[in-house]
Structure formats: structure tokens, C-alpha cells
């Protein structure tokens, strides 16, 4: 009996397992193998080079820069999106006429493809004929080169990302705030808690677990930042290059698959380490606060 059960179990799990192995486990392992070779995108005959690729990764100033820039991007983007999204959600908590329409309108940026958004903003921010600079010129104000000035373009991309993903934070915040039972606010009102006290002692702690989850989603996404950079400046710009675009540049433009694989492995280790720390924190938060 137990034996047939076992067979059944495997038969049921097999399709998914096969898919996972083919598309997740094998590529990952093959990537590790590749990272020890000098494989190129075109041409055949690669050979093992030992840890040479990894040596180059850690010596590469471009990589250090991209890593720093990505970290800055994640911190600023997620921080701003959380702050703005949560604030807007707080403002939208009250019922008013046309609230549904406002929420829907606010969600639009999130619904569009990042590549399309990048291209659109490229036009909007274009130094010569973009609507932003046209307007600034008309008002007699200086017209910065948003997407080409080396001190500005990183922040322009950041701003686009914030524009695009604040609605996501707002949506999750709305859900988190909506899950707080109104009677708790009423209890607090009768208990003579002022608005600030209610916010810091009730609203914030009770919404925190959901917000933390939203931050996790956004952070993993922002770590992979690729589309906007590609659309606005291309992958090989020294002031906007992120880790993803750097690896793209190495593998698909320079054709150095082996080296790119080594980069990817290092990034993977960094990301897994960060994710582990974060999910531990999240678990702790969820067990200490009243999260569903």
C-alpha cells in the first residue's frame, strides 16, 4: 500500500519537478559551470579557466560602481515609493465621491510596460523637444539635460521608477490600512488617544507587516533594474549602469558568456544573502504585530 502511494506521489509531482529542473535548476548549475570557463557568445571551443573570471569580477571597478549604484537605486526608489505610496493611501482612507475613479487613475502607471514607460519618459524629458523643457523654457527657467547630463540621468531614471511604482505601494498600503478593523480606531478614540498616538501606536504597527512585504517585492524588483536604464541611456553608461545592465553588456554586447556568468553568480549570492536577512526580519515583524 505504502509503495503504490509512493509511486503515485512521484507521478503527481514529476511534471512540475521536470519543469523546475529544466528551467531553473539546470540553468543555474550550467551558469556556475560556465563561470569557470572562457565561453563566448559566438564561436566554439571554450576551456576552463579556473577562478580567473571571479578574480576579474572583484577587480573590476565597473562592477563595484554598478553594485553601489544599484544599492543606491534600490534604497532611494523603494524608500520614496513607500513614503509616497503610504502617504497617498492615508489620504485616500477617507470616503469621498469618485474615490474609486481616483484610485483607478492612480494605478495606471503600474499597468504599463516598463520599456514603454522608459521610451515615453525619454521623449518627455528630452533636452531639446521634450515637454518638460519646453514648458520650463516657456516659463523662462533653466532647461537641464535630464537624460544626458551625467549628474542628472541617474536621478531621472530614479524619478521615472518612483512615478511608475508608487501606485503599487499605494495599493498595498490601502489593503493594509483597510485590514485594520474600524472598531480598533473607535476603541482608541474612546481611550483618548490623539491622532499622532493612533498613527504611531495603531496604524503604523498594524500596517507594518504588509508594508514590509511590499518593500520586499519592490526591492527584489528594483535590484533587477534593467528596462528603464536600457530605454533612457542604454546598458553601458558609466553614470547609470546597474548590475543587470552591466551583465547584459558583458554577455550580449561583449559576448563574454563565461565572465558574465561569474558576475551573475556573485550577484546571486549577494541577493540571496540580502533576501534571507530581510525575510527573517519580516517573520519577526509578523509574529510581533497583528498581521493576518
Amino acid at each position: 500500500m505504502a509503495k503504490t502511494d509512493g509511486g503515485m506521489k512521484w507521478a503527481l509531482v514529476a511534471p512540475v519537478l521536470l519543469l523546475l529542473i529544466t528551467f531553473n535548476v539546470f540553468p543555474l548549475l550550467y551558469n556556475i559551470v560556465l563561470s569557470f570557463t572562457n565561453a563566448e557568445l559566438v564561436g566554439s571551443g571554450s576551456r576552463t579557466v579556473g577562478g580567473a573570471n571571479y578574480g576579474r569580477v572583484f577587480a573590476d571597478p565597473q562592477f563595484a560602481g554598478a553594485l553601489r549604484r544599484t544599492a543606491l537605486f534600490v534604497t532611494c526608489a523603494v524608500g520614496a515609493e513607500l513614503l509616497l505610496g503610504f502617504s497617498v493611501a492615508l489620504a485616500l482612507q477617507r470616503a469621498f465621491r469618485g474615490k474609486q475613479a481616483v484610485v483607478t487613475a492612480l494605478l495606471v502607471p503600474m499597468m504599463l510596460s516598463p520599456a514603454v514607460i522608459g521610451l515615453f519618459w525619454n521623449l518627455i524629458l528630452n533636452g531639446n523637444y521634450g515637454i518638460v523643457n519646453q514648458t520650463l523654457g516657456w516659463l523662462g527657467l533653466p532647461q537641464p539635460q535630464w537624460t544626458t547630463d551625467r549628474d542628472l540621468k541617474f536621478w531621472s531614471i530614479l524619478a521615472i521608477d518612483i512615478w511608475m511604482w508608487t501606485p503599487f505601494m499605494m495599493l498595498i498600503s490601502l489593503a493594509g490600512l483597510g485590514a485594520i478593523p474600524p472598531s480598533i480606531y473607535e476603541a482608541a478614540e474612546i481611550d483618548r488617544a490623539g491622532r499622532l498616538r493612533v498613527f504611531f501606536k495603531i496604524t503604523l504597527p498594524m500596517a507594518a507587516p504588509v508594508l514590509a512585504l511590499a518593500v520586499l517585492f519592490r526591492a527584489t524588483d528594483a535590484l533587477k533594474q534593467f528596462d528603464l536604464v536600457m530605454a533612457v541611456t542604454g546598458p553601458n553608461d558609466s553614470s547609470t549602469q546597474t548590475v543587470s545592465t552591466l551583465i547584459y553588456q558583458i554577455v550580449f554586447r561583449d559576448g563574454k558568456v563565461g565572465l558574465g556568468a561569474a558576475f551573475a553568480c556573485v550577484v546571486l549570492v549577494v541577493v540571496v544573502a540580502l533576501a534571507t536577512v530581510f525575510t527573517r526580519q519580516l517573520d519577526r515583524l509578523r509574529s510581533s504585530e497583528g498581521a493576518p
Partner: peptide, 24 residues
């Protein structure tokens, strides 16, 4: 006012719940 659904502050300890109105 005591509510039918209790309406405690869920993340706080019992002590913190009892202290909450007193800390106004």
C-alpha cells in the same frame, strides 16, 4: 465601551493594552 468583537490592540501585550488608555 466594550465591543462585541473585543477590539484589542492585537500586536500589543495584555499589559500594553491595559495601559493604553491610561497613557493618554
Amino acid at each position: 465601551l466594550v465591543f462585541q468583537n473585543f477590539s484589542l490592540y492585537p500586536g500589543k501585550t495584555v499589559r500594553a493594552n491595559l495601559e493604553f488608555p491610561l497613557r493618554a
